[in-house]
Design a protein around this nucleic acid. Structure first.
Lengths: 209, 209
DNA sequence: GTCTATAAGACGATAGAC
DNA sequence: GTCTATCGTCTTATAGAC
């Protein structure tokens, strides 16, 4: 693995374990057996590592959305999509948590076009929900869809942070199951009989112990 | 106002505006016209200011819960309770955001008994929802109530953070209305006809433009 | 690309005079 | 309670050898 890749990976490990603010660049360098100067060569600012990690997460999510759109628009596949997103959230939690704090800077920063990305995501989400409605999986009015979008935005952005905040000791699998179950219940409230069966298929595949 | 009080107030203003990590103790002192040493006399650690603010928020919430329990258990009053909580969240957002980050430390810290408080809150929430069910406002099974608790935990803890992160430009009133409307829709999904009327009363009193 | 060495500047925190 | 002065540590940046 290239040094640059190793820095990214090690930094994420430390951020997840100790929190961004409590990790020094010296510490990352020492743990890799390289000099701080060398780390500076690859990332002149500590914050730059953060943005690379956020970008990585964003690209992973793009891929998850693409994967969904290539398949049939069912609630089962939708839950698979959300599972991928939550897994990436979990993986990048130390970076995403910190990103919330420099929110003011983010919005005018061009390394991540943050507001544009979240606008795009919201439009994609709306398309997906409407697709699920036409496919007979959701019985949702326009205002129901608006509500679900509000819910999903909050859910996708913060559920892993809640897990990290309150129960940092829990295993990934346990955490993800908890939130996917919550999501399944919410979606079932707006699902048709066909949609409910699709949710049950997801449940039996991924949520059984 | 005493110096100590002025420090707390000014610190919160700065935290809300720039984020905890981007505010120095020197900056707070300068804006108050006192020396950094004097600020250190009142708060030996910057973190201590954070904990005072968090405690302030927690006590405000305690009061909101007490107020609710003295009134009739209706969905209208429940939404009023949540409105109070959201307002305090909004007021303390700069501090609460940062608190997420030192979560690991918090759990073993005795300045805030964090895990105990959240356990207590969850029990209170469960009681309230069960009260609403017996009062004929909610038609919710035991598992429905479990779901609502999961939702409300996430909602109460992170909705204001979402607002702060994505739309820091919006006014308090606008932000609160958006989330109260979202909450009203969620509760209506489990409400009886009587409960729905109670929600509508809340809506007409507080959510009209 | 990688290293050593080092300096600048900001920060939280502390010591001691008044 | 309030001040000035200072310490130690951190990020960031740069110069120059290999």
């Amino acid at each position: 693995m290239k040094t640059r890749e190793k820095i990214i990976q090690t930094a994420l490990d430390f951020f997840n374990k100790k929190g961004y603010a409590n990790v020094g660049v010296r510490e990352i360098a020492r743990s890799l057996g390289i000099s701080p100067g060398n780390l500076s060569y690859h990332f002149s600012k500590k914050e730059d590592i953060l943005f690379v990690l956020a970008k990585q997460h964003s690209l992973t999510n793009d891929q998850s959305f693409e994967d969904f759109l290539e398949k049939e628009a069912t609630l089962e596949n939708f839950l698979v999509l959300m599972m991928s997103i939550l897994k990436s959230q979990y993986l990048h939690r130390g970076a995403l948590l910190e990103l919330s704090l420099i929110a003011a800077d983010i919005q005018t920063d061009d390394r991540l076009n943050y507001t544009e990305t979240s606008r795009r995501r919201q439009a994609t989400l709306k398309n997906i929900l409407e697709l699920l409605a036409t496919n007979g999986h959701l019985k949702a009015s326009a205002s129901d869809i608006q509500f679900l979008i509000s819910f999903l935005k909050l859910f996708a952005r913060f559920s892993m942070q809640e897990a990290f905040l309150l129960d940092s000791f829990r295993e990934e699998k346990e955490v993800i199951s908890y939130y996917l179950n919550m999501l399944a219940i919410q979606m079932a409230l707006f699902a048709t009989a066909k949609g409910k069966r699709s949710i049950e298929r997801f449940r039996s595949k991924y949520l059984t112990e």
